[in-house]
Structures are given as structure tokens and as C-alpha cells.
Computed example of a mutant assay.
Amino acid sequence: MPFIQIVGMTPTNKSFIIAHAVVSKERGDNFVWVLERVKAMLDECMEPRVILTDRDLALMGACAKVFPDASRLLCRWHIQQNVMKHCKGAFTDDDWKKFLSFWGSLIESPSIPIYDYHLRNMRKRLVECKRSSKSLQIRVR
């Protein structure tokens, strides 16, 4: 049976457990039920402003239903895992190390202008390495 863990983050980047739940299946109505129980425990001022998830569509839909005012983002760790899984094969070992360096600069960008700068540099480098958009799709933001 799926185990759901809901974690909060403090302003000092420390995580803490809010709730645990075990559900029969990873379905939207089960996620809604869990999130509604969590919402009932919180004062309105404590409701999340941002929710990070993997790309589970049922969970994303439940978050939108129960916490409609919260921004919903994909977890960076899950994005990194997808990059590793789907992109690594398009590179030699040396080029992969260079790509990871560009990728790291991109995801650590502290502002939109710096992000745009790193994205342009990464795209330029991919063109120089003859990586076509067909072999490597960069769809971020």
C-alpha cells in the first residue's frame, strides 16, 4: 500500500514531517482525502504557499483542488532524475560532465535574468557540441 509523507520546510531550509498516511491506491480521491485531513489540521495562515511534487498527475490535481491558491512546482530532485535518465545517453562522458556543469549553473540561478543567461549559454554549448533539439529537448520554465 502506498505511503504518503507530507513534509514542510522552514525559512532556514530545514524540513519537518507534517503527516504520514497509508492509502489503498495512488488515486486522486485518496490524495484529496489525505490533503483535506492535512488542511483541517492547519490554521488558514499555515496553508502552503508552494507545493512540490513529482509529476504524479493525480497528486498534482488533488493539490490544485485542496490548495488552489498554492503555487505548484515539480521537485528538483525528480527533474534531475529525469535529466539523468533521458539525456545522459546523448553525450560522451566528457560532454556529459560539461553538460552537468551548465545544468547545475542553470538550476542554481538566483534570478530570472541570470537563469536566462545560463539557458542561452547551455543552448549555445549544445549547438556547438552538435546536439540537435531532436536528440535532447530542453524545456524548462
Rank of each mutant, 00 (worst) to 15 (best):
A58E: 12
T92H: 07
R123V: 06
N30R: 03
D29R: 10
K97H: 12
D43W: 03
Y115A: 09
S24P: 10
E128M: 05
Q80P: 04
C45D: 10
W96H: 02
L52P: 00
C75H: 06
C75G: 01
A70P: 06
I107V: 09
I114Y: 13
V34R: 00
E26N: 05
P110E: 06
L119F: 03
V38F: 01
E108Y: 13
N30D: 04
P110G: 11
K88E: 13
D29K: 14
M46K: 10
M122G: 06
K85R: 12
L74T: 07
F67T: 07
E26D: 10
D29A: 10
M41P: 02
I114N: 12
S109A: 11
L126N: 02
K39E: 00
I79C: 00
V50A: 04
P110H: 09
E108S: 13
M84P: 06
R125M: 13
K97M: 11
C87N: 12
E47I: 14
A64F: 14
A64S: 14
L73F: 15
N82K: 01
K124H: 07
D29M: 09
L106I: 01
N30L: 13
K97C: 10
V23Y: 07
R125S: 09
T92E: 08
V34E: 00
E36W: 04
G61C: 04
E36T: 07
D43G: 11
T53N: 09
V83Q: 00
L119D: 00
Y115H: 04
F67C: 03
H78Q: 05
F67K: 09
R76T: 11
V127L: 12
R27K: 14
R120W: 03
W96Q: 01
S111E: 01
K98R: 13
N82D: 09
R37P: 08
R120D: 11
W77Y: 14
D69N: 15
V50T: 12
R37Y: 03
I51C: 02
M84W: 12
K124Y: 10
G89P: 06
A62N: 11
M46Y: 15
G28D: 08
K65S: 12
L57V: 14
F67R: 04
H20D: 03
R125F: 08
W96P: 02
K65G: 02
I112Q: 15
F99S: 02
Y115W: 12
V83M: 00
K25L: 07
L35A: 01
N30C: 14
R37F: 06
C63I: 10
G104K: 10
A70V: 13
N121E: 11
L59S: 03
Y115I: 01
K88A: 07
G61Y: 09
D95E: 15
I112P: 08
L106M: 11
V23M: 15
R120Y: 09
C75E: 02
R125Q: 14
L74V: 10
L42S: 01
C87W: 14
S101F: 12
K88G: 04
L100I: 09
K124P: 01
R27M: 15
Q81S: 08
H118A: 04
A90N: 15
D116N: 15
V38C: 09
V83R: 00
Y117M: 06
M122Y: 02
